[in-house]
């Protein structure tokens, strides 16, 4: 396989096949954990770790797993890495653990993770699977940071916890609350569609 090909495996997750903005996968954590840019980043990185690790293991043992029990096997592998993230985060970054709460164990059911294991890692070699996991994970993280950033700027008038002093009061609270999450994501997806269309034409 040529180098451009390797590069495209890595970068396709950033924009062209972005898990959240284009494929509309992993929406629950994308909406639920992005009250601020930092939380979005924490969630994104945790997901990326699980994504890369499960991609590695799945691609290593893909030939040992009978087809019919493939999904349950993948789920156990993914759940194992999720629990590792869960325990380590609880032990070493308790504040982030508290902020992400239920959404950490729920990485197990993030369609992105199982989706990549099934669609990519089970058919490709280890190196490509690592690249795919990294690319998809970074794209996911990027999406969460953007959504978290937009919500934090509009909702609390700050970014990464730094006050921007753009609002006289507290900012547009609705963006920190549930409805704002849906609305902000809706507009960001519309913008991403537009950008992707431009690239296709060019």
């Amino acid at each position: 396989m040529s180098n451009t090909n390797k590069l495209s495996i890595l970068t396709k997750g950033f924009l062209k096949e972005n898990a959240v903005f284009v494929m509309l996968l992993g929406m629950c954590p994308a909406l639920g954990t992005t009250t601020s840019a930092v939380n979005g980043m924490g969630m994104g990185l945790a997901t990326m770790f699980v994504l890369v690790m499960s991609n590695i293991v799945v691609s290593l043992i893909k030939n040992l797993i009978p087809d019919k029990v493939r999904i349950p096997s993948y789920i156990v592998i993914i759940a194992t890495f999720v629990t590792i993230v869960d325990l380590s985060m609880h032990a070493y970054i308790p504040s982030l653990y508290k902020a992400l709460g239920l959404f950490i164990p729920l990485i197990v059911v993030n369609c992105v993770v199982l989706g990549r294991a099934e669609a990519f890692a089970s058919k490709n070699n280890v190196l490509d699977s690592i690249l795919d996991g990294l690319g998809m994970g970074l794209g996911f993280t990027l999406a969460l940071v953007i959504l978290g950033g937009v919500r934090e700027i509009l909702g609390s008038g700050s970014i990464f916890g730094i006050d921007l002093h753009i609002f006289p009061g507290d900012g547009m609270l609705v963006f920190v609350l549930a409805p704002g999450a849906f609305i902000a994501l809706g507009y960001i997806i519309a913008i991403t569609n537009k950008i992707n269309k431009k690239f296709q034409k060019a």
Partner: peptide, 21 residues
Amino acid sequence: EGMKGAPVALIVAGILALAFM
């Protein structure tokens, strides 16, 4: 045109969430 599909669905969902608040 640009809002068709997912974007407008999400915004409607947001308004529904607003109603549930």
